[in-house]
Design a protein around this nucleic acid. Structure first.
Lengths: 194, 194
DNA sequence: ACCTCGATTCTAGCATCGCTAGCCAATCTG
DNA sequence: CAGATTGGCTAGCGATGCTAGAATCGAGGT
């Protein structure tokens, strides 16, 4: 079995190598620079090996998204734990979310904007995605009013954050006022929860 | 002058032909189907004529965006005029906005999601864009609380709508509950303006 | 009526993209 | 050591956005 396990281990190593190379290349030069040829050169293999690990370029991006989402979940959690009170929780998580999106735009896009077919709002969704949403849910639930479904309220708050990010990143909203818009969003979701 | 003006008129006609062909093709088969070759075949000219009118494919999409934005502005206006009261105005405009996005996804993407370089939040922005934002502004301003800057509040509300649309359209939010999420967003922006 | 010349449109091609077929070599088995 | 099998690589396909240079059309003068 030793020979077989060594092969599988090397294969798994190379798969990680592909995903991290794709992420680093995307973070340093944008997703447009992540071509299959360029990525193959980066890992010092030929193009077709990519397709022996992943179904296609989309699958590689999906892997980057899942891995990056785990990072996001951690950052959301630590942000929430560093604040106290419902309103502070919501604000801290919202700021951590947008900070992540601005600091790592390529990863954020892989997770939330690029058309990569990952199951999202279903039980089959990858664990990191559910973890990240769970962190949002924990921050939003305490400010839900009676009759509000926490899940739906979380999705709505999330949409607000996502809209701010995407419109600003594409130049449709001026970046200068981002902080004030974010504060407005938080304020309107925490009305009456001083 | 007659011959010159006729030429210019024909040229303008063909430019309109290009834009409408691009829009119709995008609306019926999606932007992926709008290749320069396909578009050239659709207007029964060869590829290079596209480049004698527009700098490139992006410029054609920008033209579709500007034209479509005029439609959006009209729909937002009629929605607002069909309602009475600050809360009803905000709700009507929000519903009209999302309805437009769902009914004409290709045009919506050209305006708000695809990376097309149009000046947005500046005085140089094309008039239809300013008109559409102005309609949102008119609906939001009445529910702004003292101290809130209407412009920023409008941008924040707009971001909420845009986030709901993009996350739902990409499958990241279940479409079934869209109406309830939209209602939640509106409710949180109209707290205290029954 | 014809010819010239300038403007305009088309043919053909470039570089690059994601992806794949089929050869070739290295490695394991008997 | 010979045969078989796994796995990577070379080469190429079809399609993309875009462009250079040939070809064609039409206006104006003689």
């Amino acid at each position: 079995m030793s020979i077989q396990t060594r092969r599988e281990r090397e294969r798994a190593d190379r798969e990680r190598l592909i995903v991290t190379a794709a992420r680093e290349l995307a973070e340093s030069e944008g997703w447009d620079a992540v071509t299959t040829r360029r990525l193959a050169a980066e890992i010092e293999y030929s193009q077709p090996v990519l397709y022996s690990h992943f179904k296609g370029k989309d699958a590689i991006m999906a892997a980057v998204a899942v891995q990056g989402c785990a990072d996001l979940a951690v950052e959301l959690r630590t942000a929430r734990e560093g604040a106290s009170g419902p309103r502070a929780h919501l604000a801290a998580v919202g700021r951590a979310y947008t900070a992540f999106a601005l600091r790592r735009p390529a990863v954020y896009d892989a997770i939330f904007t690029l058309p990569v077919d990952l199951p999202f709002a279903t039980p089959e969704a990858p664990e990191p995605l559910q973890a990240a949403f769970g962190e949002l849910l924990r921050a939003v639930t305490p400010i839900a009013e009676p009759g509000d479904e926490p899940g739906l309220l979380t999705e709505t708050y999330w949409a607000g954050l996502h809209g701010l990010i995407t419109l600003m990143r594409s130049g449709r909203l001026p970046a200068r006022e981002h902080e004030r818009r974010l504060s407005l969003l938080i304020a309107h979701f925490t009305a009456g929860h001083g």
